[in-house]
Design a protein around this nucleic acid. Structure first.
Lengths: 132, 132
DNA sequence: ATACATGCAAATCATTTGCGCAGTC
DNA sequence: GACTGCGCAAATGATTTGCATGTAT
């Protein structure tokens, strides 16, 4: 690991990710940064996102899309994806450690972690459906 | 939906996907096809994979990689990904419908399905570790 | 005869990388 | 002074698409 210098840009990227509930793409981050850092380059955004990931300060998650998403929420949690509007919500339920152990025995493998994604229709889209 | 014509190539692609336990990428499929269809083009492989997905004959799954994977196994199942060798294994345990219902109530959403990916070290890589 | 299917090549889109300069330690 | 961060632009890699031709119905 190289020692990193202080970088206002990177600090700001981390802050953006910590303070949003959407699960941003690089483009989203780039867009937000532009007002404060008008000359910022996409390449730099990607480089910094990757640095933050490798330092374990944010996570990289994809959801069956061709675009990468990032998550500033490091606590164990699951996700719900609305197939109608594409929104992604965090789900905070206690992680299923028992299930992990079961799989571990079943496969004779070491299971270090798991992820669960739920798909369906979010409350907002449910309402919209009823109205039409 | 357009009516599809019979296509030996597409039939073969489907067959390949039905008869493998790896979760192939387009490149893998392309490679297998080349012996039987020497003039096959990558573009055609992609087009046919997308057709098969849209017809619901195969599924498209990504695993935090920049490459798409496809799965010919349509039964509900989970996956285990070895972080050492990258292999992906199907896990056949009864799907957690109770959990789905719990999330449905928690979020006031409709949950249509979910996926679970387990990460860790597979039996083969565990052995290799011990030997070294 | 009418489209779908295919090969081929160019285009697209997200992401990465090389380079030269600027700012930090 | 050495090294990291940055903007810029070119490169990369996976996937898509337009076009002309072939082929199933």
């Amino acid at each position: 690991m190289a020692k990193r210098k202080k970088s206002d840009l990177r600090d700001r990227i981390l802050e953006l990710l910590k303070n949003t509930e959407v699960h941003p793409t690089a483009a989203w981050v780039f867009d937000r940064l532009r007002t404060e850092f008008p000359r910022v380059a996409v390449g730099t955004v990607y480089r910094n996102l990757n640095i933050l990931v490798s330092e374990g300060l944010i996570k990289n998650i994809s959801f069956n899309e061709p675009i990468e998403r990032y998550d500033g929420n490091l606590s164990e949690h699951y996700h719900f994806i609305c197939e109608e509007c594409g929104s992604i919500r965090d789900i905070n339920v206690p992680p299923l450690k028992t299930l992990e152990n079961r799989i571990e025995k079943l496969l004779d493998a070491d299971v270090t972690h798991h992820r669960i994604d739920f798909y369906g229709v979010c409350p907002t889209c449910k309402k919209k459906r009823k109205q039409s």
